[in-house]
Computed example of a mutant assay.
Amino acid sequence: MSALHPIPVGWVSTGKTGAQNYDEFADDAEITALVTDHPESMLGVEMPHRTPEAVADGLDFAGALPVASARLAGMIDRGALQPFTDAIAVYRIGADFLALFCLVDTAEIASGPGEPGRVIRNEEVFASKVAERTALIRTLGTLTSPVLLVQAEGSLREELEKLDLGRPDVTDVDQHGLTHAVWLLGPGEDRDRVLEAADVGELVVADGNHRSLAAQQAGLTRFLAVVAPAESASIQPYQRLLRTADLSQVLDGLRAAGAGVQAVDGRPATPARGTVVLYADGQTYEVTLPRAVGTTADRLDHTIVEQLLIRQVLGLTPDDPSISYIGGDYPAGWLAAQVDAGRAALAVLLAPVTVADFVEVNLDRAVMPRKSTWFTPKARTGLVLADVHADFQPEASSR
Rank of each mutant, 00 (worst) to 15 (best):
V277L: 04
A218F: 08
L184Q: 05
G177E: 04
L184P: 11
S248Y: 08
R255G: 10
A228E: 00
V205P: 11
V264K: 12
E202N: 15
R243H: 00
L251G: 05
H176W: 10
R240F: 00
R222Y: 06
Y238F: 12
G188K: 13
H176K: 13
V293M: 12
D281W: 04
G208L: 05
V194K: 12
R273I: 14
A225G: 01
G282Y: 09
A256L: 12
L254G: 07
L195Y: 09
L251K: 10
A256V: 07
G274K: 14
A269C: 09
V276F: 03
T275I: 11
L178E: 12
Q239K: 01
V250P: 04
Q236V: 01
Y238D: 02
A230H: 08
A228W: 03
V277N: 05
V200R: 15
A225L: 02
A197V: 10
A259T: 06
G186Q: 10
V205C: 06
A272G: 15
A215I: 09
A256R: 15
A263E: 15
V250R: 08
V173I: 07
D174I: 01
V227F: 01
L220C: 10
Q262Y: 06
Q239I: 02
E231D: 11
R291E: 15
A263R: 15
P237E: 11
D207Q: 03
V250S: 10
D281S: 11
V287G: 09
G188S: 13
Y285P: 00
H210E: 12
T296E: 14
G177S: 04
H210L: 07
R211A: 11
P229C: 05
R273C: 12
T284Y: 00
Q175I: 13
A245I: 03
G201F: 01
D265L: 07
P229H: 04
P290V: 01
A198D: 04
A245K: 02
G260L: 06
H210I: 06
V293L: 13
L185G: 10
D252G: 07
E189V: 15
D174R: 07
G282A: 07
V182I: 07
G274E: 08
A214P: 12
V200G: 05
P237T: 03
A257S: 08
E196H: 15
Q216T: 13
R267F: 04
G186E: 07
A257K: 13
I235E: 06
W183Q: 12
A269D: 14
T171D: 00
G260P: 06
L241I: 00
D172G: 04
D192T: 13
D192H: 12
R240E: 03
D174E: 05
A181R: 15
V182C: 05
P268M: 00
A228L: 01
A181P: 08
R291V: 12
V250F: 03
L185V: 10
G258A: 02
L289Q: 08
E231Y: 02
A272V: 10
E202S: 14
L251F: 05
L247I: 08
T171M: 07
S234K: 11
V293Y: 09
E286V: 01
L203I: 05
G186A: 07
T270Q: 13
